[in-house]
């Protein structure tokens, strides 16, 4: 009796994951059917493993903010600012041989600067949300402007081109025969997942998102936990920024602006409840892969990037409609 109930609970809990997998397979099959010779190429999948991790990390960051019923509209700003600050550091420290040959120590320093940017930016968001008590939407809307604005001030507008080779390795190198960003993504996803399920921080975030008032009366450190969650969000965004600047060998204040919508979409599609209390890394990871397959399929079919934006938007609305329909049936 007890075992049976547990089994059903597990199946229920994973119903969302099963649905996501089914959706991914469907997209895969449809795209294969539409252009079998091009879509199934190894090169195609390999390039996806280089591109999706940055968006995947931004989506996981978005999910973490949504766990407590918040949202982080500044993730793209944080990512760009991180890349730009590191880029400026490399330009300043580069010797006659040029930026590309910068030594490992300086590159690591750049990494520290980038991650530190994410940490500080996230802490600022967290401070505004927990201490000043600004709604997450407005707080991150404002700080997003500030971060992007600082990026413009620092660069004056144009991109910073040219990053050290060690740095680029993070964005387009190989590790164990796989794309470095992909390997990093898997490791980070596992780590975040572990934090959410197996540490007091993660469980507390879920509880706070479920009922903030009850969390207060149960003595949870609500402010501190929410603060940490935005710091995590900021750090994840800055890692995405490192990957982005490494992959493109450049950093600019308005890179990846369409990532914001896509990160929200993927988080929601991955089963995150925007009102808080529910969200899983695995769901988000599958959702990002599904949508990347969709995107690359359409690119192969020679759809313009603008049309792909259109499709993403339509997909988000479709997901909302389907979720609403499912809830009604239940």
């Amino acid at each position: 009796m007890i075992n049976k109930l547990d089994f059903r609970a597990i199946l229920n809990r994973d119903k969302n994951i099963v649905q996501l997998i089914v959706m991914t397979v469907l997209i895969f099959v449809i795209m294969t059917a539409l252009s079998p010779d091009k879509f199934l190429r190894y090169y195609n999948f390999e390039s996806i493993t280089y591109i999706f991790p940055e968006l995947g990390l931004l989506s996981i960051a978005m999910m973490i903010a949504m766990l407590t019923g918040g949202i982080d509209l500044s993730v793209v700003g944080i990512a760009n600012l991180s890349g730009i600050l590191a880029g400026i550091l490399f330009k300043k420290l580069a010797d006659e041989t040029g930026v590309a040959d910068t030594g490992l120590a300086v590159v690591l320093l750049g990494g520290v600067v980038a991650l530190g940017t994410g940490l500080v930016a996230g802490a600022l968001n967290g401070l505004l949300i927990t201490k000043v008590k600004i709604t997450p939407i407005l707080a991150t809307l404002g700080t997003g402007q500030v971060f992007t604005g600082l990026a413009i001030v620092l660069t004056g507008g144009p991109a910073i081109v040219g990053f050290p080779e060690h740095w680029s390795w993070v964005g387009n190198g190989k590790l164990l025969g796989l794309a470095t960003p992909f390997v990093l993504f898997v490791l980070i996803a596992i780590a975040v997942s572990f934090i959410l399920v197996r540490t007091p921080l993660g469980v507390n975030l879920m509880l706070i998102g479920t009922n903030p008032k009850a969390a207060l009366f149960a003595g949870l450190k609500r402010e501190r936990m929410v603060f940490y969650s935005y710091m995590m969000t900021g750090v994840l965004a800055s890692i995405a920024g490192i990957m982005l600047s490494g992959r493109t060998n450049a950093a600019k204040s308005d890179y990846g602006t369409s990532y914001l919508l896509q990160a929200v979409l993927i988080a929601v599609l991955g089963g995150t409840n925007p009102a808080g209390g529910k969200g899983r890394v695995l769901g988000v990871a599958i959702a990002v892969i599904a949508l990347m397959l969709l995107s690359s399929g359409f690119q192969i079919l020679r759809f313009s990037n603008h049309l792909i934006d259109f499709i993403w938007g339509a997909f988000l609305l479709l997901v909302i409609a389907i979720n609403a329909y499912k809830n009604r049936v239940r």
């Binding site: 879920m206 509880l207 009366f217 949870l220």
Partner: peptide, 15 residues
């Protein structure tokens, strides 16, 4: 004020 309704008994007890 007291409960996390959509969470399990376990998390409500251990919170």
């Amino acid at each position: 004020e007291g409960l996390f309704l959509t969470q399990g008994i376990d998390r409500n007890i251990l919170c």
